[in-house]
Write a protein that binds this DNA or RNA. Structure first.
Lengths: 222, 222
DNA sequence: CTCTGTTTTAAACGCTTGTTTAAAATTGCT
DNA sequence: AGCAATTTTAAACAAGCGTTTAAAACAGAG
C-alpha cells in the first residue's frame, strides 16, 4: 500500500466509470433545466444510481454544477480559440468562426442559453470566468481588428459591437428557436433546414458589412 | 346584499391594492429569477405580506406565474404591433421597429430572456401563445415583405430569416449583456452607451442588407 | 353596537429538497 | 482464502417547499 506510487491506475480499465456517468447525466440535466430547475435525485436517476453517490463523488449539487458549467464554457470557447489562433486573414477567420459556431451550436443548441442564463442570474453559483475570457484576448483577435480598421479594410465600428454582431447572429437563432418556430408555425425539421440557409445569410451580411470592399458580394441567395 | 349590482365599487378607492402589490412583486421576482428560481414566500416578502395572501388572490404559484408571463408577453408585443399596424413603407416600419425595440428593451432588458427561457423549458408551466402570435400575422407584415421582394425592392430571403435577423440583433445584446460585459471588461454604464451606438449600427446593417438599393448607405459611423 | 362578508394572519399540512450517516456490497492485494 | 480500502446502498436528517386551514382583524350596513 505504501508502495503505491501509481494511484488509481486501475481506473483506466473502464471507459465509463461511475464518476463519468454522473457527470454525463448532470451535463444533460443541468443544461436542459438549469441549476434551480432540477434536483440532485433527478441527476442520480438519469445516471441510473443513488442520490448519495452524487454527493460521494462531488461534494454538493453546487460543486457538481460548477464543474459542468466550466466544462460547457470550455467546449463553447474551444472552437473559437482554434479559429482565432490560425494565421488566416481576419476576414477568413471570421468566416471560419461563423461556420464553426453554427456547426457547434447545431450539435449543442442549449449551451448558449445555459451559459447566458446562469451567468446572468444575480444569485447563481458564483464562478470565476476571467481566465476563460483572457484566452480570447490573448489570441490577439481584437488588435487584429484595430489593424484592419486602421488600414481601411474593415469598417470602423467599436470592437464590442463587432463581438455583438457576431454573437447575436450566431447564438440567438438557437436560443430563441422555440419562439421563432411558434411565430412562423414551423416544425423542428423545417427549422433545422432554415438554420442552414440562415448561416449563409448571416455570413454574407456580416462579412459584407464589416468588409465593405471585399469580394463577398456574391449572389448567395436561393 | 342582493341589490349589489355594482360589486367591488369600493375597490377603486386605493390606487395600489393588495392584489396589484402582489402582482408587481411577482413580476419583478419571476422575471429576475424565473419560475423555478424563486419561492412563493419570496414573492410574498417582496410584496410585504404573508404567503397565504398570494394563494388567496391567485390560486397557486403556477396560476400567478401564468398571469405575469402573459402580461410580459403582451408588453413585449405591444410596440411591435403598434409599429406594424401603421401605413408607412416597409423599410420605415422596420426602422421604427428597431428603434422602438431598443427603447423598450433598455427599459425592460430582462423580458426577452424571461420569455425565451420559460418558453423553451420542456417542463415549464404550459401557456397557449397562439393567439399572441396570430396578432403578428394579422398585421400583414409578412405578406408585405413578400410583395416588396416580388417588386425587387427587398432582398429575396426567407421570411423566417428576416424575423431571425431582426430579433437576433435586437434581443441578444440585452440577453447576453453579462457575457459581453465580461468579455470586454466594461462597466454597466459603458455598456449602456455601447447599446446606443449598436442600435445605429444594427439599423444600418440590416436596412442596408434587406433593401440593397435604398438610400440607407449613409456614413453613420463615428 | 351587532351582524355580515371580506381580508389578513399564524400555524400547520404533507412532501420534496440537499446532505449525511452508517451499514452493506464490492474490490484489490497478499 | 482473508483483510483493508473503496464503492454503493437504504435510511434518515433538518430545512424549505407549495398549499390549506381555521381563527383573528377589519370593514360596511342596519
Amino acid at each position: 500500500m505504501l508502495l503505491n506510487f501509481a494511484p488509481k491506475l486501475t481506473k483506466l480499465k473502464a471507459d465509463s466509470n461511475t464518476e463519468d456517468k454522473i457527470k454525463e447525466a448532470a451535463k444533460q440535466v443541468f443544461i436542459a433545466k438549469g441549476f434551480s430547475g432540477c434536483t440532485s435525485r433527478e441527476i442520480a436517476k438519469a445516471a441510473g444510481m443513488n442520490v448519495a453517490l452524487v454527493n460521494y463523488y462531488f461534494r454538493s449539487k453546487s460543486a457538481l454544477f460548477k464543474i459542468i458549467f466550466e466544462a460547457a464554457m470550455g467546449d463553447f470557447l474551444l472552437s473559437m480559440l482554434e479559429v482565432f489562433n490560425t494565421s488566416l486573414s481576419l476576414e477568413e477567420k471570421l468566416r471560419n468562426y461563423l461556420s464553426r459556431e453554427y456547426e457547434f451550436l447545431a450539435k449543442y443548441p442549449e449551451i448558449p442559453s445555459f451559459i447566458i442564463n446562469e451567468m446572468g442570474r444575480k444569485d447563481g453559483v458564483h464562478i470565476d470566468n476571467t481566465s476563460v475570457f483572457k484566452c480570447i484576448e490573448q489570441t490577439g483577435i481584437f488588435e487584429e481588428c484595430l489593424i484592419e480598421q486602421k488600414a481601411g479594410r474593415m469598417r470602423e465600428i467599436d470592437i464590442t459591437s463587432i463581438t455583438l454582431l457576431m454573437m447575436s447572429n450566431c447564438q440567438f437563432p438557437f436560443m430563441g428557436a422555440a419562439v421563432i418556430k411558434q411565430v412562423h408555425g414551423i416544425s423542428d425539421e423545417q427549422y433545422e433546414k432554415q438554420l442552414v440557409q440562415h448561416k449563409q445569410i448571416v455570413t454574407d451580411m456580416l462579412i459584407g458589412y464589416l468588409f465593405p470592399g471585399s469580394t463577398s458580394t456574391q449572389i448567395t441567395q436561393k
